[in-house]
Design a binder for these strands. Sequence first.
DNA 1: ACGAAATGGTTTTAATCAAAACTATTTTAT
DNA 2: ATAAAATAGTTTTGATTAAAACCATTTCGT
Lengths: 156, 156
Amino acid sequence: MNTTSTFPTVLRELLRTNQSFLSYAASHVNKLDLTLPQFDVIITLGGTAGMQYKKLGEKTLITKGTLTGVVSRLEDKGLVERAASKKDGRSQILRLTEAGNDLFERTFPEHLEFINRLFSNYSEEEIATLGTALLRLQKAVSVCRGNEIIDEVIDE
Amino acid sequence: MNTTSTFPTVLRELLRTNQSFLSYAASHVNKLDLTLPQFDVIITLGGTAGMQYKKLGEKTLITKGTLTGVVSRLEDKGLVERAASKKDGRSQILRLTEAGNDLFERTFPEHLEFINRLFSNYSEEEIATLGTALLRLQKAVSVCRGNEIIDEVIDE
DNA sequence: ACGAAATGGTTTTAATCAAAACTATTTTAT
DNA sequence: ATAAAATAGTTTTGATTAAAACCATTTCGT
């Protein structure tokens, strides 16, 4: 890797690809009068009897501070409801309302179809290559982050 | 591709990888008391005599509505300045101030080093594979978007 | 048994995102 | 020459991002 080159182009492509894909996915979800994070919550809760807030945060990649607001707006739309957990006074269970479940069952298959069109000309191997390459980079980030934290501790 | 599977896992990995990488990059840029979009503007302007606002938007992937605010905050920090274009009354030229240029020259090489650590164990081929896979998906999105726009026109 | 530490979720904060509407200017069509 | 269309950048809007601080509750250590 030539350390004097400009910003690594492959990372620029990662950002472009991410933005491009999100824009494509949003163009479908906007028709449901939902945002991508809102729809992500719905499809994560869909097909379940409910889920703890913490688990929902883990599955959707929405940080907990942000998730409170996303869930509130879905409550306002009558699509999601909260219930206190019986086991842990701090905890809450989230689940789709009847309207939320109807929307999920009606729209999720077509959304899946919409997303899967992207791969209509891909072989299984090509999809696997992309996935593997992405996981590889995630791992590289984890390794570098771990090293950075150690560097900070040593500097104290 | 099994159309009844859950959200395509490879796309979930794209989102995770993007988020993970941005978080890693931000951890370095935050030390400069800048945000990633602000730093992106600085490194895009760095090494140039100035750039038109429109061009800056194209190179940084920040939409023009958002770019106004990002640039304003950099002006407030004394790192960027604007000048009216002599050729086009609508247009503006943006450039780094002396302080902005100093910051760029001081920090860009170390940021590049910080980012390039991610690839310290990659071969050229592995980097190329990732880049190619990402470009392939971008193209797939473009193709699907083009088809969607055509679908909308026909529906009118 | 009790205090300390950790955890689950909320609130606060500053910044960003992205699209639509707007204003001023330039370019295009007639 | 003039009106219509397009463009460059700003403003507005509602939502999200992400981190830090906070409060209430649970878990851990002594």
